[in-house]
Amino acid sequence: MNTTSDILCIGSVLWDIIGRAASHMRQGSDVPGRITRLPGGVAMNIAMTLVRFGMTPTLLTAIGRDPEGDELLAASSRLGMVTDHVYRSDDLPTDRYMAVEGANGLIAAIADAHSLEAAGAKILRPLIHGPLGTPAVPFEGLVALDGNLTLALLEEIARSDAFARADLRVAPASPGKAERLLPFLQHARATLYVNLEEAGILCQRTFTGSESAARALVERGALRALVTDGGNSASVANADGTLTLTPPSVLVTRVTGAGDTFMAAHIAAEAQGAPDEEALSRALQAAATYVSGETPL
């Protein structure tokens, strides 16, 4: 396949196994619900949303040469993604993510991205040795990067000449991996997408709202920062100032993938030339539609 791509999505592409119940849950709850198995992972979630907004993403990730991997790769191609450059491992299994969600939100989740971490820099070979770029002729387009990569690899990307001209959009995979974004906190070409908790971890303080959190990230050296706070306000900040908007109020039916949807919708809006306020508004609307269950899984 030689499909022209609009953006590289680098990071986790795996199977999401998610159990959802309509009732409130707590530790030890045993309730009826639905269990789904769908393509997921931060890079995949971003790519799926980009496709819905008319963009063609290229995946750079690790997928095992097992039946689950074959199925996942085929699903990615059917969804409209370029998979030519995916690293296929002979000895690493395809990664998985498992979550339980109730009416009161995410109850618990386990991300098994060990194969992606073990593959390391092998997933970047198309950017280092071609055909997507080389350190001498670096890739110049949009790159969505997720924090499921190891800290060592993220540090390598942050200083690599192969990414010196890229428009980097970076997000942690979860609050537990937020500190992996530290190499991009003072990066000249990186935009950070985080939630309120992740912003607090990066700044080592507690925030009461997205506006102060976004400003603090910029004060710490971020080129630009977007901070979300669930159904509360979301903010984007850079050296010129801060913009804050409130998302639409909706009934929340799912939460896994909401942040990835927000990030992808914002990237797509900007790629289409939308000004700052419109891009943020469209991203919030897309995330609200997603959590309400109106967007197809």
Rank of each mutant, 00 (worst) to 15 (best):
P248E: 08
T3A: 10
M1R: 01
F163Y: 05
A287Y: 14
I107A: 14
S281N: 11
T289M: 13
D84I: 04
A21T: 13
V218E: 09
E140G: 03
A190F: 10
A225F: 12
A43N: 03
A234V: 08
V291G: 05
D240S: 13
A74E: 13
L116T: 01
H85F: 11
D84Y: 09
R65C: 13
S76R: 01
F262M: 08
E140F: 06
Y97H: 12
G221P: 09
T83M: 00
V137D: 13
D16P: 08
T206N: 13
V86C: 10
N45W: 07
A178E: 08
V194C: 12
E294T: 15
V194Q: 13
E179C: 03
L245D: 06
M44T: 15
S115N: 02
R215L: 11
Q204R: 11
D276Y: 04
Q186W: 00
I63H: 09
G231D: 14
R34F: 03
A173K: 03
T49V: 03
E117P: 07
R254H: 06
G120K: 00
L38K: 14
V194R: 11
A111Q: 04
E278T: 13
N148A: 00
N232H: 15
T228N: 13
A213N: 08
N104M: 03
L202V: 02
L154I: 04
Y87F: 15
E219Q: 15
G130S: 06
L226H: 15
S233F: 09
L79Y: 08
Y97G: 14
G293Q: 10
V170S: 02
T261R: 14
A268F: 12
F53G: 00
R125T: 12
F262I: 07
S29D: 00
D84L: 00
L145N: 07
P183A: 05
D90Q: 09
R26K: 11
D167P: 01
A268N: 04
D146N: 03
A199P: 07
V194F: 10
